[in-house]
Amino acid sequence: MFGYIIRRVLLMIPTLIVISIISFVIIQLPPGDYLTSYAAQLSAQGDTIDAQGLKALEERYGLGQPIHVQYFKWVSGIILRGDWGQSMEWQKPVKDLIWERLALTILLSSVAILVSWFIAIPVGVYSATHQYSIPDYVLSVISFVGVGTPGFLLALIVMYLAMSQLNQSVGGLFSSEFLLAPWSLAKVVDMLKHLWIPVLIIALESTAGSIRTTRANLLDELNKPYVETARAKGLEEGKLIWKYPVRVALNPFFSTVGWSLASLISGQTLIAVVLSLQTTGPMMLRALMSQDMYLAGSFLLLLSSLTVIGTLVSDIILAWVDPRIRLRG
């Protein structure tokens, strides 16, 4: 098991390297030189930057030097000094901007995954054990609609309903008085009050998918001989379903938790834009729009790394719950 984890962690490294290269390429994509546009922006705001300041920036990013030198400067800055570059738009180091947003993104995604499992697993099990019954049919239709309705449209619809029916705005994660306030207990409480709508919307998409996966996997397992063995023992039907086939049917769940985390973070981006949540999505969008490339690139790098780590964690969990894999690894 330990060797398995070590091997998986080592395998992760090349992936992270390629991800960083791609993020760097994206930072470089917009036409024009970063420094020129930075200076242009500063002068547009009435500031000027002295030659010395420019020199310092040039040194920091290795500008004007070959592209691979720039890449190494950027990467080593991140790894050695935690320097993610400078956000042009915010006039702040990127590192001051990203972490809170990233933490909220992770919080929201993890809660959403838990909520979606909490709903999807019992519903999926019920649907599979009552195949072709009326509730199964209704649940299937609902989950089909859930799969088909993209999260950001749902968010839009929920906003509209809240606006027109309750005359309430549901956007954001905080009330306005806490928006810029430092973290405090009151702010956390305030966030929890706002959290449930985004969480439900984010969870819905994956919930619907998970219901269908659980149902399909369980239907495959229900006819396996080991279920009959358990039944022939005289075990109670409900107990045996949860102990044996559900247990096996949920394995693919753990193996895809990494991917579902990826698609959650990905899908959440658009939902967050619609609901103007204080997560990575809206800030990344804004950064992209204003070509604030160090900020945008950092987000891409961080979100991708998050997915890689998520996949790793899910692989480890899978190895832990499924003895067949544990021993092979």
């Binding site: 991800i19 990494g258 990826a262 990905s266 891409l300 979100l303 997915t307």
Partner: peptide, 20 residues
């Protein structure tokens, strides 16, 4: 496997933002 680890929407966003 690698492509699938990159969250698609942020990647799409970054790439389409680069379109002139």
């Amino acid at each position: 496997e690698f492509i699938r680890t990159i969250p698609s929407i942020p990647l799409w966003m970054a790439l389409s933002a680069a379109l002139p």
